[in-house]
Deep mutational scan, measured.
Amino acid sequence: MQNSHSGVNQLGGVFVNGRPLPDSTRQKIVELAHSGARPCDISRILQVSNGCVSKILGRYYETGSIRPRAIGGSKPRVATPEVVSKIAQYKRECPSIFAWEIRDRLLSEGVCTNDNIPSVSSINRVLRNLASEKQQMGADGMYDKLRMLNGQTGSWGTRPGWYPGTSVPGQPTQDGCQQQEGGGENTNSISSNGEDSDEAQMRLQLKRKLQRNRTSFTQEQIEALEKEFERTHYPDVFARERLAAKIDLPEARIQVWFSNRRAKWRREEKLRNQRRQASNTPSHIPISSSFSTSVYQPIPQPTTPVSSFTSGSMLGRTDTALTNTYSALPPMPSFTMANNLPMQPPVPSQTSSYSCMLPTSPSVNGRSYDTYTPPHMQTHMNSQPMGTSGTTSTGLISPGVSVPVQVPGSEPDMSQYWPRLQ
């Protein structure tokens, strides 16, 4: 039975679970980093996980050691009161100082060594604690504590007292930064006198190289990059290397530039699409467009005044059976039934097929058609009795279509119309 579990990581490298990497692998990681390889490249070359490479390099940059820390136990506290007071002093002298600059000053002034120097995250935590204590304490208590930490007896009751030896409130920041720059020169002199001055200088240079600022491109470089971006948004590694040799930039910087440029292009394309949609959409909808001609068919113009009344309900007709019959029939052209047409008796099958359309009241044959006459024609229609054979009435077949029909004066039988409509 094995005491430890061995495995293979996602890159194909072998590791022992819970145990640190061998010293030979750690040394190779540092050597590759000094030669300029990126952590992701080191991870692929040595088949070590990216997190492990970053952790080893980060500890090497901070402490200069590649040895693993002790497994188990607690780390001794490195942010001692003396170190905290120095950090507060540096922050007062130059409020814009960075944590890694404070760390360098602690090393250069001999406050800490490589073994007990606090990390950048520890210094940031100390600065946050100082800021929170400043908010919790009152103004007087804060000034007393700062005077105690600074070891001075001057008056701290006013704002300019934060910067000793100065009279203009805006000047101390520059003086403090100048003092810090002077301390940086002392850093070089002190570290050069040490035993491991060369190694420390190499480590600091490598650290500065990794902690780079934003790349500033010249106009020629920007023009070359934009020209390549117009050709393709995704250049391959050969195109990037050719462009890197042409404009004297690292291939990694060119790759990052193209990634950022593609993101910018997507944002601009989104804005262009929004403007295009806004320009195509009308600002207001016309009133006429809300009524579609496919839904509402136009009603033909009436030929006679009587045809303006298109349904039985508008003429005072309360018989719903006839109203439904007229509205359900398709529109037909106007025609006239003459008196000489043969009077065919209704076929029983045809009569039964339209039995649902006729009223059940037996008085329908005896009703006159003056009910369908509009009010303004009552006088004219009353002067001509319906009993004469020459009287013409208008029957409504569908809305908007008038059918003048000659009705025999002897017997106005409704059943004569249905064979004609089939």
Rank of each mutant, 00 (worst) to 15 (best):
V8R: 12
S122Q: 00
V30Q: 05
I87M: 08
R67Y: 07
D144V: 09
I45A: 14
G13I: 01
S122R: 02
D115M: 12
C52G: 06
G141E: 13
Q27C: 14
C112Y: 01
L57F: 03
N124H: 10
N114Y: 10
H5A: 13
E62I: 07
K134Q: 11
R19V: 05
D23G: 08
L32E: 04
I29Y: 01
E101I: 09
H5I: 09
E93F: 07
Q136K: 12
R26N: 02
E31N: 12
D104W: 09
K86A: 15
I42Q: 02
S54F: 04
S4M: 12
K28T: 07
N17Q: 15
S74H: 04
R128L: 02
S132V: 11
C94G: 12
V126N: 07
R59M: 03
C40Y: 05
T113K: 13
L57S: 05
T113Y: 10
R44M: 05
Q47N: 00
I117P: 08
Q136A: 10
T80F: 06
E109F: 10
S65Q: 12
I29A: 04
V78M: 03
K86M: 10
H34C: 10
D104R: 12
G7M: 13
P39S: 08
R103Q: 09
G73C: 04
N116K: 15
R103H: 07
S35Y: 11
P68V: 03
G138V: 11
I102P: 02
C94V: 12
C40R: 07
L11Q: 07
H34R: 11
K145E: 11
S108L: 13
A79V: 07
K86Q: 08
R67T: 08
V126T: 09
D23H: 09
P68F: 01
L127F: 06
L32M: 12
G64F: 00
S43P: 02
K28R: 11
L127S: 07
G73H: 05
I71D: 01
V30D: 01
R92H: 13
L57P: 00
P22H: 05
V48R: 03
T80W: 02
K134Y: 10
R67E: 10
C52E: 00
E101C: 08
K55H: 07
C112K: 05
L130W: 10
Y90N: 06
G110E: 11
R38T: 04
K86N: 11
L146K: 12
G72L: 03
R103P: 03
E93W: 05
N3K: 14
S74L: 01
G58M: 13
I97E: 15
Q2L: 11
A99N: 06
Q89P: 00
R67H: 03
I102V: 05
R26G: 02
K145R: 11
R105H: 09
I66Q: 04
R69Y: 07
N50Y: 12
I87F: 06
M137N: 11
N3D: 09
G138A: 13
H5K: 15
T63Y: 00
I87P: 01
S43F: 01
S121L: 03
R38L: 04
S54E: 02
V78L: 04
S96G: 08
V84P: 01
Q136N: 14
Y60F: 15
N17R: 15
N114H: 12
D144Y: 09
N3A: 14
K145M: 13
L127M: 04
R103V: 06
I56K: 00
Q2Y: 09
N3T: 11
A37T: 11
F98G: 05
V83K: 06
S4K: 12
A131R: 15
P95I: 10
I45L: 10
I56N: 01
